[in-house]
């Protein structure tokens, strides 16, 4: 299949769609619910602010904060995108996009614009709060360090968004999807996001390295934590180059797989599917 070029008018329409989506989402109470999560994390940070991991190699506050940023990316880019696709398939949003010229392309483009903002919004109050709560030296000091943090943020979102689309396209029933999400929570809990992976047995460390979650956390820690804290990582140092290569590899594979699955999902989208979902919700309530 030849790659269709995208007319400028479609880009404009997609930008308008993204803007409307964001404005309407964050001007309703349910959208503002996203801000509840950073409040929770700030409470946690306050509790652990003086604790440390691995005999003082790393402060717990800084470690958990980096983990929170990593988990924010996973929540928005994987779980957020997958969950939206699941809902949009059933409520008719995707079918509507399909009925419009270039509508499906525009819909996915607008998602590319909306997701980083979705990921960023809960992060901002958390960063401000952490800067006030955490001990000196945990948060970036120079402009360069902040810029690097932002780059890592965008890179990890970009690497995970296609995988969110893949999960959203693959799991076609509500139950299967719920299990996939539970699986991600479990992975997040054991992937070294919230405590050093080196505290786990060696075989578990190998498994953890096979998930992108470990590498996302590691990228954030490499930017936020002092050089010496790299000693708690698997391998004993930050090894930023390796971390970036792994994340880029996840991004590339995701970008190869996602369009194929999304195209299949779009092709299968039909009115009877939407009607069946409505019937189910009316009867069972979910």
């Amino acid at each position: 299949m030849s790659r269709p070029s995208i007319p400028a008018s479609v880009l404009r329409a997609a930008v308008r769609q993204a803007r409307t989506t964001l404005v309407r989402k964050y001007s309703t109470p349910s959208g503002l619910g996203n801000l509840f999560v950073p409040l929770v994390i700030l409470v946690v940070l306050f509790w652990v602010r003086d604790a440390d991991f691995s005999d003082g190699l790393v402060t717990a506050g800084g470690y958990v904060f980096a983990g929170f940023l990593g988990f924010g990316v996973v929540a928005a880019a994987i779980m957020g995108v997958a969950g939206e696709l699941q809902t949009e398939r059933e409520d008719g949003t995707l079918l509507r996009a399909k009925a419009v010229p270039h509508g499906m392309t525009g819909h996915l483009l607008s998602k590319l614009l909306v997701t980083p903002v979705d990921a960023l919004i809960p992060v901002v109050p958390a960063v401000v709060g952490a800067a006030l709560l955490l001990p000196e030296g945990t948060m970036p000091t120079g402009v360069g360090r902040w810029a690097l943090l932002f780059v890592v943020f965008l890179l990890t979102v970009a690497a995970m968004m296609p995988w969110g689309a893949v999960l959203g396209a693959v799991f076609r029933s509500m139950m299967g999807f719920a299990w996939a999400m539970i699986g991600i929570y479990v992975l997040a809990a054991v992937s070294g996001l919230f405590f050093p992976a080196t505290l786990m047995p060696a075989w578990a460390q190998w498994l953890v390295q096979a998930t992108p979650l470990y590498w996302i956390g590691r990228a954030f820690r490499a930017v936020l934590l002092p050089e010496a804290s790299g000693a708690v990582e698997i391998g004993g140092s930050w090894n930023v180059g390796l971390t970036l290569v792994v994340l880029l590899a996840w991004a590339v594979v995701g970008l190869l797989v996602a369009p194929v699955l999304l195209r299949r999902m779009a092709r299968r989208q039909s009115g009877s599917l939407v009607a069946a979902a409505r019937e189910r919700v009316m009867q069972r309530g979910y």
Partner: peptide, 9 residues
């Protein structure tokens, strides 16, 4: 389309 709850907000 027979829509029902898309673009609710």
């Amino acid at each position: 389309l027979q829509s029902w709850r898309d673009h609710a907000t």
